[in-house]
Lab assay of single mutants.
Amino acid sequence: QAPETKIVDKSRVACDGGEGALGHPRVWLQIPEDTGWVECPYCDCKYVLKGSKADAL
């Protein structure tokens, strides 16, 4: 199944896999201003900063 994409309001987000005990260790991710998105290294969930150029795609 394809990784999930989430639109977020802040450039710093936490990801834990979203499945409680079945998820992964919580990691904090920083969305770079130049790209407007970041992917979780564990679950490949893509976080897109709302209003960024990546959000316009």
Rank of each mutant, 00 (worst) to 15 (best):
V8M: 00
P32H: 06
A21V: 11
G17S: 02
G51E: 06
Y42V: 13
Q30V: 12
K10F: 12
K46L: 09
D9L: 11
Q1Y: 12
R26S: 04
G17E: 03
V48L: 04
A21N: 12
V48A: 01
K46A: 01
C43P: 00
I31C: 08
Y42C: 09
D34T: 03
G20D: 07
D44F: 15
Y47R: 00
P32T: 04
R12Q: 13
L22N: 12
E4V: 14
S52C: 08
P3E: 11
G20F: 06
L49Y: 06
A56Y: 13
E19K: 12
T35K: 08
E19I: 12
T35G: 04
E19H: 06
A14C: 12
L49A: 05
S52I: 04
G36M: 02
V8Y: 00
V38W: 00
G18D: 05
A14P: 13
W37T: 04
L29I: 04
V13C: 08
A56C: 07
H24G: 03
K53L: 10
I7P: 06
V27C: 06
E4Y: 15
V8F: 01
W37N: 04
K6W: 10
G23D: 07
P32A: 07
P25H: 08
C15P: 00
G20L: 02
P41I: 04
P25L: 08
S11K: 08
V38F: 01
G17N: 02
T5A: 11
W37I: 07
I7W: 08
G18T: 08
C45I: 15
P32R: 04
G17F: 02
G18Y: 06
V13T: 01
K10Y: 12
E19W: 06
T5P: 13
C15F: 00
D55A: 03
L22C: 01
C45Y: 15
D9N: 08
K6C: 12
K50S: 09
Y47N: 03
D16A: 07
G51M: 01
L29M: 07
L57R: 02
P41E: 04
T35W: 05
E33K: 09
K50P: 08
Q1W: 14
G51P: 08
E39L: 14
L29P: 01
I7C: 11
V13R: 00
W28D: 01
P25A: 08
L57S: 14
W37P: 01
W28G: 02
E39M: 14
T35H: 08
V48Y: 05
R26L: 12
E33F: 10
D34K: 09
A56H: 14
L49F: 05
C40D: 06
T5R: 01
D44V: 13
C40S: 04
L22T: 10
S11Q: 10
G36V: 06
A2I: 10
T35C: 04
V27S: 00
V38Q: 01
W37F: 13
P41Q: 06
E19A: 12
K10A: 09
A54C: 09
E33Q: 10
E4G: 15
P25S: 13
V13I: 11
G23P: 08
K50D: 09
K53N: 08
R12C: 14
K50I: 09
E19C: 15
V38H: 01
C15L: 00
G17M: 03
Y47T: 03
P32E: 07
G20R: 04
T35L: 12
D16H: 07
D16I: 08
S11F: 08
W37G: 07
T5S: 09
T5L: 11
D34C: 08
